[in-house]
Simulated scan of single mutants.
Amino acid sequence: MKDFFNAIQDLFVNVLFAPMDAIRALELENWFAANTISWIFIIICIVAMVYWMLQLKIFSDNNEEDKSISSHSFL
């Protein structure tokens, strides 16, 4: 059982968090480069959220969503 938890630890520490460690090491060398990478990720998230909201608005304008109360008896 101990090997199982050590495998989970190894997965997170050495694989999944490796990009975070790389950005942390980059910050010590070049602060502007590390922040540029962070801002690029933030911009990608904002663009994805705006796209998602626009798609939700399209479906809402077409009245494709079932808003009837009969779908839930407790309402």
Rank of each mutant, 00 (worst) to 15 (best):
F4T: 04
P19G: 11
L56W: 11
F41S: 08
I58C: 01
M53P: 00
D3M: 01
E29L: 06
S73H: 09
F4A: 04
K2L: 07
I37W: 03
I44E: 09
S38N: 03
D21S: 14
A18I: 06
S38G: 04
V47I: 14
M1G: 06
E64T: 10
L75R: 02
F17A: 06
L16A: 14
I69N: 08
W39F: 08
L26V: 07
V15K: 04
N30I: 00
W52P: 00
S60E: 13
H72E: 02
L16Y: 11
N35C: 10
A18M: 13
N14R: 03
H72M: 04
S68W: 01
N35E: 09
D66P: 03
N62E: 12
F17D: 01
M53A: 15
M49T: 11
C45L: 14
Q55T: 07
I42M: 14
A22V: 12
I58M: 06
L56V: 11
Q55R: 12
T36Y: 08
A7F: 02
L26N: 10
F5Y: 05
T36A: 12
N6H: 05
A33F: 02
V50S: 04
D21F: 14
A22N: 11
W39A: 07
K57T: 08
F4Q: 01
D61I: 01
A7T: 02
V15Y: 05
E29P: 00
I58W: 06
N6A: 06
N35A: 07
Q9L: 10
K67N: 13
V15Q: 06
A34S: 13
S60Y: 15
I42D: 09
E27D: 11
F59W: 05
S70C: 03
D21Y: 14
F74H: 05
V50H: 02
A7C: 02
N14G: 07
S73C: 06
M49E: 12
M20N: 10
L11I: 09
V13M: 14
